[in-house]
Amino acid sequence: MKNNKIFKTIFTLPILVYTFILIVLPLLYILFLSFCTSDSYGGIIYEFTFSNYIKIFDLTYLKILFKSALIGVITTIICILISYPFALILRRKSAHIQNLVTKLIMIPFLTNSLIRTYGWIILLRKNGIINNGLIMGGLTSSPLNLMYNRFGIVVGMVYTLLPFMLLPICSSVFEINNDLIEAAKDLGAKPLQIFRKIIIPETISGVFNGSLMVFIPAIGYFFITDILGGGKIMIIGNLIKNQFLTARNWPFGSAISIFLIIITFLLVKLYKRLGGKMDDLGGF
């Protein structure tokens, strides 16, 4: 019996220690900090206050939240618009090809994301490959502004996050039972009807899984706005980073982080309600 107990301890103690020290403690501490204030030198004053949360709703910061959400939503929609047709076209192909395509999607993902983003600088610059190509082809007379603006940021975000959308959508589309669609066709259903009545319901959790894994990083990836946005546009990620590194206001930074966690939880709740499984997130 004693042996059993040791066995059980070995298998349960690490997870208890891990969860409480590396998940619960950090988050509780951030929560605690979010109710403190900071002195002018960035020290923390332990006085209870709601002021950091009230500050988030200041028009200046609301605008940043709105801008980030906009970039996040646009990125997510573009990812869906690319992934859906992609998956549908490959739906009827053999498992062999589907497997190969999935691997090919993964490969660029295995190189460093910064250096891939840097590749975009070479492409999108004023004298970059794309602009030179357009000018040589006579499509434009003066170079277009392809980066250091919102366009550049969205390109970078879509590029970095596309696999997170492609993979869940592909796997849910590939799993649709073909008999179901054949039966619907036999009964005279039009392609659009099949799409609305069968494909969408069967794949909605995959879409939402992807949306979650795209939208949340898209409002936090400060390095993409830094590199491709030319530091001109702030998203929530930059705002949090600034509070911790530039403005030295940890309590305010913590409050924004807590706010972001709440948004994340609401989205996860919605995802679960739509029938999504937690284990599908991140496991690809």
Binding site: T60, I64, G231, K232, N242, R248, N249
Partner: peptide, 13 residues
């Protein structure tokens, strides 16, 4: 007063 600067910075960006 750095917070005044910080806010202006967030507003222009």
């Amino acid at each position: 007063d750095i917070s005044k600067y910080d806010k202006i910075w967030a507003e222009i960006k």
